[in-house]
């Protein structure tokens, strides 16, 4: 490097700062320090060979990308990546595929057929739902989906 004006004697206080800074380097910043807690999939940086992708695909944070993912992937993202933009996009993609979130059971339901009964308060019929405990899709006959448990907020 060039020091066109020549070096000057660093004041004592600068030397102290430098000493503390060097020490601070030993307790460096991790990306998690400034991220909201992710209980299921905490980021765990480790060296990966350079011939593996080091970054996510371009535009993988777009709704279009999420529409191309399988339903199970979307459920995984929804349940294991809470509080992220990915969760939001997954919810959006699921809604687009006519899945509806049940706020009491915390599960996603899809009509298997036209409901037998539809009133102002509920609808009843056969549904497919995703059981996050058994981790799979199940069918439920004679199920009453009460609208007060329907999560119907517009995800804009």
């Amino acid at each position: 490097g060039v020091a066109p004006l020549g070096p000057v004697q660093l004041p004592k206080q600068c030397l102290y700062q430098l000493h503390m800074l060097e020490a601070a380097c030993r307790h460096t910043i991790y990306p998690v320090d400034s991220q909201r807690l992710r209980p299921y999939l905490p980021p765990n940086p480790c060296p990966t060979p350079s011939y593996y992708p080091q970054q996510a695909l371009q535009h993988s944070d777009s709704v279009e990308f999420f529409h191309r993912l399988s339903t199970e992937t979307l459920f995984f993202i929804f349940y294991f990546m809470e509080g992220t933009k990915a969760q939001y996009l997954a919810a959006k993609a699921l809604k687009k595929q006519s899945w509806r979130f049940h706020t009491k059971y915390m599960m996603w339901f899809q009509r298997h057929e036209e409901p037998k009964t539809i009133t102002d308060e509920y609808e009843q019929g056969t549904y497919v739902y995703f059981d996050y405990e058994k981790w799979g899709q199940r069918k439920k006959e004679h199920f009453t989906f009460e609208y007060r448990y329907l999560e119907d907020r517009e995800l804009n």
Binding site: S34, R36, G83, T84, Q87, Y88, A91, T103
Partner: peptide, 30 residues
């Protein structure tokens, strides 16, 4: 940093009330 996020973004949940299993912090900041 948590204070900053909470006070400027809000705890913005998905509009999924009482998400017991998922705690209370569904934040997007988008």
């Amino acid at each position: 940093i948590i204070l900053l996020m909470e006070l400027t973004l809000g705890p913005n949940n998905l509009g999924l009330p009482a998400m017991n299993n998922f705690q209370h912090q569904l934040g997007f900041g988008i």
